[in-house]
Design a protein around this nucleic acid. Structure first.
Lengths: 243, 243
DNA sequence: CGCCTACTTGACTTACTTCAAAAACAGTGG
DNA sequence: CCACTGTTTTTGAAGTAAGTCAAGTAGGCG
């Protein structure tokens, strides 16, 4: 499953009904793929985007650079996500994208996509919906990082990643590759690295989950969900109840 | 300027080029308006939306309810905004909307809007762009509430509100009606009410701005921007440099 | 005038950050 | 194979910013 078309179609079908013509239209899109090393940028804040990126495999992250030098991760994306569909109708990227673990990304020219929309408006709507789901994830991140205590905040992030991966069948049983470092976790959840570590240890001690060496293991889903004050409604997926 | 059509057209033109046919199409949309008291909900978390709300006048807020009882404001919207275009292609609202001050809101049936898109795809794109701008604002809120210290966080919020209002010509010179309470500010920025008050006093003492009785006054834009680590690029507007 | 709500202030407590250093681990080259 | 380097994770101790709690003031309205 390393074909960009297949990956995109599978992903769009998770939330939208695609007619055969839509599928055909997707299959006619030109794309070129590239592999990235962990931490390698592929879209920079300030870029004028001419291609839409599609995550084929691996995990990528979206981030803001702060004028003070730091970075804030905004969201993570995996196989099937179009992390910069956000850039389709925007002149300049207000955020960057980088590989988290090793990742393979396909690039589709905006022009091609726009022509496809003209031929199949329903395809445009499917991708529009994709951007709306993204926005819902952003909203939840606001709430997560603003209103939840550290332990819940971290648990919530893991719940979300696991839930989203599961919908796409990217998990292996109750484990999932999340090749993110503690520093990056801190840059995601707005906590200092020391706190990240201590909070993580609390979560491990709870017995609900483990996370080490870039691998998340969900041991007791219900309890983890409880710890993270996690309600998957905002992900707007059909089959949304894990283990 | 209390006509929903005019307000929407003015707002869409701020970021998109509209053909005369697009304008005509907007003018053909049915709508009905209602006035709301401060704090009154008009869309509830969990609703299945059938209308799109357009803020005609006043200010409204978008929020999450937490399972623990609290609330988290996600964004604020003013004249011309479509705060739940986000709900156009989503089954169930994952957030609520309420009036902040007294507000007038117009409702346009989703069905009408979708039909308009079929006739004028370019209009659909303009509204899609609107939802993408919304998403950019969400992203910035993540960064603001996660990575900036309290003073900057509050200053940034005021910068954003002022900047956005100014683009739409909703300010009166260097003042702007922001009928939000300190409690709500806390629910927006993720701070306790006591901290809100003390931070606000710091900002007043800085001489860069004042905020009292629901009125924001920008005294020294440049300094306020500095205090808030504010860079308006993420708002993606053309004329973006205040005073 | 009294009531309600919104804002303000002070004192106390705690959770998180910061700083600093150690331990674990991976990669490199002798 | 083992020292050497750099990175990531872990731990500890100290300082502080922000939360909590509780009380008081001010303004708006019947």
């Amino acid at each position: 499953m390393d074909n960009a078309h297949e990956v995109l179609i599978r992903s769009l079908k998770e939330h939208s009904r695609l007619a055969d013509e839509d599928v055909a239209e997707v299959c006619s899109l030109a794309w070129m793929a590239r592999n990235y090393e962990p931490n390698e940028d592929f879209i920079r804040q300030g870029d004028v985007p001419e291609f839409a990126a599609l995550v084929v495999s691996g995990m990528v992250g979206r981030y803001h650079l702060l004028q003070t030098g730091g970075r804030q991760f905004l969201s993570f994306h995996m196989s099937g996500d179009l992390p910069d569909a956000q850039g389709l109708f925007i002149e300049r990227m207000d955020h960057g994208l980088c590989a988290i673990g090793p990742a393979s990304v396909a690039f589709i020219p905006h022009k091609e996509i726009l022509k496809a929309f003209e031929r199949r408006p329903s395809l445009g709507i499917a991708i529009w919906r994709e951007t709306l789901l993204d926005a819902a994830i952003f909203r939840e991140a606001i709430t997560n990082n603003s209103a939840r205590p550290m332990r819940a905040r971290m648990a919530h992030l893991f719940c979300e990643l696991f839930c989203r991966a599961r919908v796409s069948g990217l998990n292996h049983g109750n484990t999932l590759q999340v090749p993110i470092s503690l520093v990056q976790l801190g840059e995601t959840l707005g906590m200092a690295i020391a706190t990240v570590n201590r909070t993580l240890q609390e979560l491990r001690a709870s017995g609900a989950m483990d996370f080490r060496d870039g691998e998340l293991t969900v041991l007791k889903w219900r309890e983890l969900q409880e710890l993270g004050d996690f309600n998957p409604d905002y992900l707007h997926t059909r089959k949304q109840t894990p283990p």
